[in-house]
Design a protein around this nucleic acid. Structure first.
Length: 640
DNA sequence: ACCCAGACTTAGGAGGTGGAAT
DNA sequence: ATTCCACCTCCTAAGTCTGGGT
C-alpha cells in the first residue's frame, strides 16, 4: 500500500535537550498503599447468589471496612490501583468463568440458492458448501482475484469436498458463486431493513450473551472479558501481501479448547456431547481460554478487558518503566553515540540501530519465518534495500531515506538527516552487500534487548516508543496550548499534539472512503455560515443606526440581541473551521493507537484538569474505563 | 548461541450505532 | 421519517518479548 507519500511531515521527534525541564516524578513504581489481603478485602456484588457463595469465606472483613462497605455503584468502581500488587509471576488467586461462546453452526443454504460449475447447477455437500459460502461472501473484494488467494482457497476447499466433488470441481475459474453472493447481499440488505422490534430482539440477545459469558470473577471482582466469542471459521485474510491469504480458517470445537480457571471454581461446562481439550489451573498466566489456530499454528487467547485490574496494572507499569527511562535516557544516548566509534562491528550496529529506535520510534524488528507471513521489517531486520544514503539532499547533509513496510504492511517512508558518524557507519554496514542482505547483520532483537536490559532494568526496544510518544505529547501540549483559547481550540491543540505522536509512530490509516465528500459538505457548511454571519452583521449595523436615531429602550435591546447573534454565529463558524482543519490534518493519520497504547493517560488527565477541559472531550467511555486509574490519580501538576 | 512455544501488547479495518441534518 | 456521517466497538492479525530447551 502506498498510502504514505513523499510530502509527509518529517517523523522526527523534537525534544528539548534540557533535562531539568521536567520536575522529577514524585512517585516511582511503588505507589501502592493498601495491602491486598487475600481475596476478601472488597466485597463484590454479583447478581447471582451462586457467585456469592464463592466468596462465602469472606467473613473476616475488618470492622472499619464494614462500616464503609461501599454501595453497589461504588463497588463497580473498584480502585485496584490502591491495592498492593501480587508478587511477581502470580496473576490471580481465584478465577471463575463460563467458558467461550462458540460460533453459530453452519446453516445450509435454501434449496433455491444455486452453485454452478462449468455452467451447470451443482448441489454441494454441506461441508463444501459452507466453505464455498465463505468465498461467495468475499466476491466483491479485490483479493478474491489474487492468484495466491485463489490458489490457497481452492486447495483448502478441495480438502472439504467429497471425492465426487473433488473429481468434478477441478478449476476454480469454472466455479460460479454469483448466485450465492447475491443471496448474501439480499440477506444483509434484509437485515438492514429489519423492523425496530426485530433489531431490538437481536440486541437483547447480544446483551444476554454478554451478561452470561462476558464477565468472569477474578479475585472477588467481576471483570469484563475482552473477547469471549470464539473466532468463526472463514477465509484467512492477512494484511499486505500475505502468502497464506485465502486459506481456510477452520471451525474451532470444544475439543480444541483449553480452559484455565481456579481449582475451586465452578468449571465451565462444554456444550452437550462435547469435551474440552484440557482444563488447567495456571495462575501464572492471565488467560481464561486458549486454542491453537490452524493458519500459523499460533495460540489464541480469551483474556480480560483493558478496564480490568490485570490489564490496567500492566499498563500502568509500562508507563512507569518509560518514566524510568526518562531518567537515564541522556546517559543511554551518550553511550550509544560513543558506541558509534567502537572497533567492534557488533557494537556499532547495535548503537546505530538503537539510535534509529530512539530517534525515529522504529519497532524492534524480530526476524520472521520466510513464507509464513508478509514481508515486513522493523529496525533490526532492515535490509540494505530499505534505505538509501544521500550525502546531500535538498540542501541537507547526510540524509537517510527509509522506505520499507512495517507492521501490518504499513509503509514507512521518511528522509532523515543523521549525524555524520551514523552515515559513515551505514556506508560501512552496506559495503559489499546485496540489496536483500540484512543491514545489521551482526544484530538481532535478542542481542539488542539484552544490552538494553544491562542499561536499565526492564528496558526493551519498545519502551523507547512509549517514552518518546509520551514525552512528545507532554512537550507538544506545553508548546501548543494557548491559555486564551476557548475549549474547542484547546482541543484542537490537543489533537495536534496527539497527531505529532501518531506521525512519529507512523500510525496511518486509509483515508476514509467518504473523505472528499464529507470535506466538501463541511466546506459548504462553512460558506453558509459565513454568509449567515455577514447577514447578521448587516442586521446589527442597521439596528445600531436605528438605535442611534430612535434612542429608545426597545431599539437598544434589539442591538444587544443582534450583537449576541453575531457572536454566536462567529463562534459557530470558528468551531466549523477548527473542525475542518482538524479533519484535513487527520486525513491519513490514526490517532487512536497512540492514545490507547503509547500516551501515558496521566498526561492527558493533568492537561484536562489544568485547562478545565472535561475529560469526556478527550476520552470516550471505553477509554475512560481503561484509564480509570489515571483519571483517579493524576493531578494537574502531573509530570511524565 | 540459537530455536521455538507461549503470552501478551499493539494494530488497522469492517461494520454497527446513534445523533444530527434534511 | 429518512438519510448521512462521525464515532465507536468488535475483530483478529501482527507485532514484541520471555524463558526454557538444546
Amino acid at each position: 500500500s502506498l498510502k504514505h507519500g513523499n510530502n509527509d511531515p518529517p517523523r522526527i521527534k523534537d525534544e528539548p535537550d534540557d533535562d531539568g525541564f521536567y520536575a522529577s516524578p514524585k512517585e516511582d513504581s511503588k505507589p501502592l498503599k493498601r495491602p491486598r489481603e487475600d481475596d476478601d478485602r472488597l466485597l463484590l456484588i454479583l447478581q447471582d447468589s451462586k457467585a456469592k457463595k464463592v466468596k462465602s469465606k469472606d467473613k473476616k472483613v475488618p470492622e472499619a471496612d464494614k462500616k464503609k462497605k461501599p454501595k453497589k455503584e461504588e463497588e463497580q468502581k473498584w480502585k485496584w490501583w490502591e491495592e498492593e500488587r501480587y508478587p511477581e509471576g502470580i496473576k490471580w488467586k481465584f478465577l471463575e468463568h463460563k467458558g467461550p461462546v462458540f460460533a453459530p453452526p453452519y446453516e445450509p443454504l435454501p434449496e433455491n440458492v444455486k452453485f454452478y460449475y462449468d455452467g451447470k447447477v451443482m448441489k454441494l455437500s454441506t461441508k463444501a458448501e459452507e466453505v464455498a459460502t465463505f468465498f461467495a461472501k468475499m466476491l466483491d473484494h479485490e483479493y478474491t482475484t489474487k492468484e495466491i488467494f485463489r490458489k490457497n482457497f481452492f486447495k483448502d476447499w478441495r480438502k472439504e469436498m467429497t471425492s465426487e466433488e473433488k473429481s468434478t470441481i477441478t478449476s476454480l475459474s469454472k466455479c460460479d458463486f454469483t448466485h450465492m453472493s447475491q443471496y448474501f447481499k439480499a440477506q444483509s440488505e434484509a437485515r438492514k431493513q429489519m423492523s425496530k422490534e426485530e433489531k431490538q430482539k437481536i440486541k437483547e440477545e447480544n446483551e444476554r450473551l454478554l451478561k452470561e459469558y462476558g464477565y468472569c470473577v477474578m479475585d472477588n471482582h467481576k471483570e469484563r472479558i475482552a473477547n469471549f466469542k470464539i473466532e468463526p471459521p472463514g477465509l484467512f485474510r492477512g494484511r499486505g501481501n500475505h502468502p497464506k491469504m485465502g486459506m481456510l480458517k477452520r471451525r474451532i470445537m470444544p475439543e480444541d479448547i483449553i480452559i484455565n480457571c481456579s481449582k475451586d471454581s465452578k468449571i465451565p461446562a462444554p456444550p452437550p456431547g462435547h469435551k474440552w481439550k484440557e482444563v488447567r489451573h495456571d495462575n501464572k498466566v492471565t488467560w481464561l481460554v486458549s486454542w491453537t489456530e490452524n493458519i500459523q499454528g499460533s495460540i489464541k487467547y480469551i483474556m480480560l478487558n483493558p478496564s480490568s485490574r490485570i490489564k490496567g496494572e500492566k499498563d500502568w507499569q509500562k508507563y512507569e518503566t518509560a518514566r524510568r527511562l526518562k531518567k537515564c535516557v541522556d546517559k543511554i544516548r551518550n553511550q550509544y553515540r560513543e558506541d558509534w566509534k567502537s572497533k567492534e562491528m557488533k557494537v556499532r550496529q547495535r548503537a546505530v540501530a538503537l539510535y534509529f529506535i530512539d530517534k525515529l520510534a522504529l519497532r524492534a524488528g524480530n526476524e520472521k519465518e520466510e513464507g509464513e507471513t508478509a514481508d515486513t521489517v522493523g529496525c533490526c531486520s532492515l535490509r540494505v534495500e530499505h534505505i538509501k544514503l544521500h550525502p546531500e539532499l535538498d540542501g541537507q547533509e547526510y540524509v537517510v531515506e527509509f522506505d520499507f513496510l512495517g507492521k501490518d504492511s504499513i509503509r514507512y517512508y521518511n528522509k532523515v538527516p543523521v549525524e555524520k558518524r551514523v552515515f559513515k557507519n551505514l556506508q560501512l554496514f552496506m559495503e559489499n552487500k546485496q540489496p536483500e542482505d540484512d543491514l545489521f547483520d551482526r544484530l538481532n532483537t535478542s542481542i539488542l534487548n539484552k544490552h538494553l536490559q544491562d542499561l536499565m532494568e526492564g528496558l526493551t526496544a519498545k519502551v523507547f516508543r512509549t517514552y518518546n510518544a509520551s514525552i512528545t505529547l507532554q512537550q507538544q501540549l506545553k508548546e501548543l496550548t494557548n491559555p486564551d483559547d476557548n475549549i474547542p481550540a484547546k482541543i484542537l491543540s490537543y489533537n495536534r499534539a496527539n497527531r505529532a505522536v501518531a506521525i512519529l509512530c507512523n500510525h496511518q490509516r486509509a483515508p476514509p472512503k467518504t473523505f472528499e465528500k464529507s470535506m466538501m459538505n463541511l466546506q459548504s457548511k462553512i460558506d453558509a455560515k459565513k454568509e449567515q454571519l455577514a447577514d447578521a452583521r448587516r442586521e446589527l449595523k442597521s439596528a445600531k443606526a436605528d438605535a442611534k436615531v430612535r434612542r429608545d429602550e426597545k431599539s437598544k435591546k434589539t442591538v444587544e440581541s443582534k450583537k449576541k447573534a453575531v457572536q454566536r454565529i462567529e463562534e459557530q463558524l470558528m468551531k466549523l473551521e477548527v473542525q475542518a482543519t482538524d479533519r484535513e490534518e487527520n486525513k491519513q493519520i490514526a490517532l487512536g493507537t497512540s492514545k490507547l497504547n503509547y500516551l501515558d493517560p496521566r498526561i492527558s488527565v493533568a492537561w484536562c484538569k489544568k485547562w478545565g477541559i472535561p475529560i469526556e472531550k478527550i476520552y470516550n467511555k471505553t477509554q475512560r474505563e481503561k484509564f480509570a486509574w489515571a483519571i483517579d490519580m493524576a493531578e494537574e501538576d502531573y509530570e511524565f
